[in-house]
C-alpha cells in the first residue's frame, strides 16, 4: 500500500530520527511512504482566526496533492498533523474558507477536504494493525515501562482531531503494548509541554515539562515517548530530569530490529 507522506520541516533537520525510522518501519510493515513533492512548511501552529487564508495554503497544497493521487496523507510530526487535519476540517466544513482558498489557488478541481489525513500512529493502527506489528516484533521491549506523552497537539480539539478520547486516550498505550513493553498511565500525558514559548521565556516550558516528567516518573515510567519534536526538546531540555525521551518511531524501529 502506498500513502502520501508529509514529513515537515523539523524532520528534515533536527528530528531526523523521527523521519528516518518512520520510513524504515513503514517499509518493513509493507507501507510505502511517498513524499509529497515540493511540500511547504505547515507553519507549525494552526492559524485559529477565521479570516486566515494565506497561512492555510501550504496545508491545502499538500492535501490536494494527496487527493490527486487518491492517497491517504500521513504525517508523523504532531504539529504538522494538527495543522493539516484542522485545515482539512475547515475545508470540509467552513464554506467561506473553502471558497476563498479555492478562489486563490484556482485549481482545475476545487479542493473540498476529500483527503483522509492520518497520523503515523493512526496509520499503524488502522492500515497495518497493532496485531500485525506485534507479530513482526523481533526484539520485544519486554519489561520496559514506557510513558506515552500525547501533549496537546495530537488530541485537541477532540472533535476535529478525532484521534482518541482527548481526556483518556489509549492509542499510544496500545502501541506500546504491541511492542511488548508496559505502558504507564499518568494524568499529565495530555497536558501541554509549554511549546514554542521556550523561545521567549523558557521558564514556562520548564514548569510545564517538569510537571509532565514528574507525573510520568511518579507512575513508574522508565522511558517517555512522543511524536512531536518540540515536545521532545522541551521534555529533554526543560524537563529537569534524566529520564530518556524518544520518538515513537525509534521505539518501533528498536522492536522491529531496524535500529
Amino acid at each position: 500500500m502506498t500513502v502520501s507522506y508529509y514529513p515537515g520541516c523539523t524532520l528534515k533537520t533536527k528530528a531526523k530520527n523521527l523521519d528516518l525510522y518512520a520510513r524504515k518501519c513503514a517499509e518493513a510493515l509493507g507501507i510505502a511512504l511517498e513524499e509529497i513533492p515540493e511540500w511547504q512548511c505547515c507553519g507549525g501552529c494552526y492559524p485559529v482566526a477565521k479570516d486566515e487564508i494565506a497561512t492555510k495554503l501550504s496545508s491545502v497544497r499538500a492535501l490536494a496533492a494527496a487527493k490527486e493521487k487518491g492517497q491517504t496523507l500521513v504525517t508523523v510530526c504532531s504539529a504538522c498533523h494538527n495543522v493539516i487535519k484542522r485545515v482539512n476540517h475547515d475545508m470540509q466544513t467552513d464554506e467561506e474558507i473553502r471558497d476563498k482558498v479555492n478562489r486563490y489557488r484556482a485549481p482545475d478541481e476545487p479542493y473540498e477536504g476529500e483527503t483522509n489525513v492520518l497520523h503515523y500512529i493512526e496509520m499503524l493502527r488502522d492500515l497495518v494493525g497493532f496485531d500485525k506489528i506485534k507479530e513482526k516484533v523481533v526484539n520485544p521491549l519486554a519489561g520496559k515501562k514506557i510513558a506515552a506523552y500525547y501533549g496537546c497537539l495530537l488530541l485537541r480539539p477532540g472533535k476535529v482531531m478525532a484521534f482518541d478520547n482527548p481526556e483518556n486516550p489509549s492509542i499510544l498505550e496500545d502501541f506500546i503494548r504491541a511492542l511488548g513493553a508496559e505502558p504507564v498511565l499518568y494524568p499529565a500525558r495530555n497536558e501541554c509541554c509549554g511549546g514554542y514559548l521556550t523561545l521567549e521565556d523558557p521558564e514556562i516550558p520548564k514548569k510545564r515539562s517538569e510537571t509532565v516528567l514528574q507525573s510520568a516518573q511518579n507512575h513508574g515510567a522508565e522511558v517517555v515517548t512522543t511524536a512531536c519534536p518540540l515536545c521532545l526538546y522541551n521534555l529533554q531540555k526543560n524537563g529537569g530530569s534524566e529520564i530518556p525521551v524518544v520518538y515513537i518511531t525509534e521505539l518501533l524501529a528498536e522492536a522491529l530490529g531496524l535500529k
Binding site: T10, K14, C45, Y196, P229, L230, Y233, K237
Partner: peptide
C-alpha cells in the same frame, strides 16, 4: 537542539 518547529510556530 532547538527544533525549527519552535521558531516557525
Amino acid at each position: 537542539d532547538l527544533p525549527q518547529q519552535a521558531i516557525v510556530s
